[in-house]
Structure formats: structure tokens, C-alpha cells
């Protein structure tokens, strides 16, 4: 699982660093998945039953990370939706969905020299 988390993070970051907005958005959602799995992993996997008290079981998995993840899922949904509309609007106004770094890079080099 740890490796899976790592790979998800890696792909997510790689996508975020790319220049196409859609990839950036998908990158964030992959990253979110990675974070969720990481949180779940931290709690220790598969020890005990689902945290629904039924009196029968002695051990339960840690409910707190699950609550955190639940919150996070919903928020990331909202954020993704917002990103999407932002990307859409950016495309509408600028005619491209690529992050244009050229000017900024040039400015940076100018400032550095």
C-alpha cells in the first residue's frame, strides 16, 4: 500500500507540473486519492471490523481517519468542480488551455541576469 500511495503521489505531481490544465486537474484528483489512501494506511489496515458498533466485535478499525477522508472526499469534489469551471473559463477567455509559462520564464531570466 505504501508503494501504491507513493506511485499515486508521483503521477499526481507529474501531472500537476504539466502545462495542460486538464492534466493538472486530473493530477489533483489522483493526488487526492493518494492522500486518502495514505490517511487510511496510517490508521493501520484491516485490524478489526468496520467502525459500526454492533456489540459483537471487540476491535474496530480507526474511525477518525475515515471521518477525515469523508470530509476530504466531499471537499475535493467541490474543488475539482471549481477547477473545472476555472479551466473552462480560462479557455474561453484565452483560447488555450495551456499554462503559458513562457513570459514568466523570460521575465525570470531577465531578473536573474
Amino acid at each position: 500500500m505504501a508503494i501504491a500511495v507513493g506511485v499515486l503521489f508521483m503521477i499526481g505531481v507529474y501531472l500537476i507540473l504539466s502545462k495542460v490544465l486538464l492534466r493538472v486537474i486530473l493530477g489533483t484528483s489522483l493526488l487526492t486519492h493518494g492522500v486518502h489512501l495514505l490517511l487510511l494506511t496510517m490508521a493501520g489496515l484491516k485490524r478489526g471490523d468496520a467502525p459500526v458498533l454492533n456489540g459483537g466485535s471487540k476491535t474496530y478499525t480507526d474511525p477518525l481517519p475515515q471521518a477525515l477522508i469523508l470530509t476530504s472526499i466531499v471537499i475535493s469534489f467541490g474543488v475539482t468542480a471549481l477547477y473545472f469551471v476555472l479551466a473552462y473559463r480560462a479557455y474561453q477567455t484565452r483560447g488555450t488551455d495551456e499554462i503559458d509559462d513562457q513570459d514568466a520564464d523570460a521575465a525570470g531570466k531577465e531578473g536573474a541576469s
Binding site: 500500500m1 505504501a2 508503494i3 500511495v5 507513493g6 506511485v7 499515486l8 503521489f9 508521483m10 503521477i11 499526481g12 505531481v13 507529474y14 507540473l17 504539466s18 493518494g34 495514505l38 494506511t41 496510517m42 493501520g44
Partner: peptide, 21 residues
Amino acid sequence: TNLIVAAGVGITMTLVALAAM
């Protein structure tokens, strides 16, 4: 560059997950 940064983050996160366990 992107790949290296991404790989770095990925490996770090793997280690974090392992450490957490």
C-alpha cells in the same frame, strides 16, 4: 525535471507511509 520532482515526492510519501506504519 517534472519526473524527478514527482519521483522525489512519491518516494518521500512512500517512506512517510512506511514510517506511519
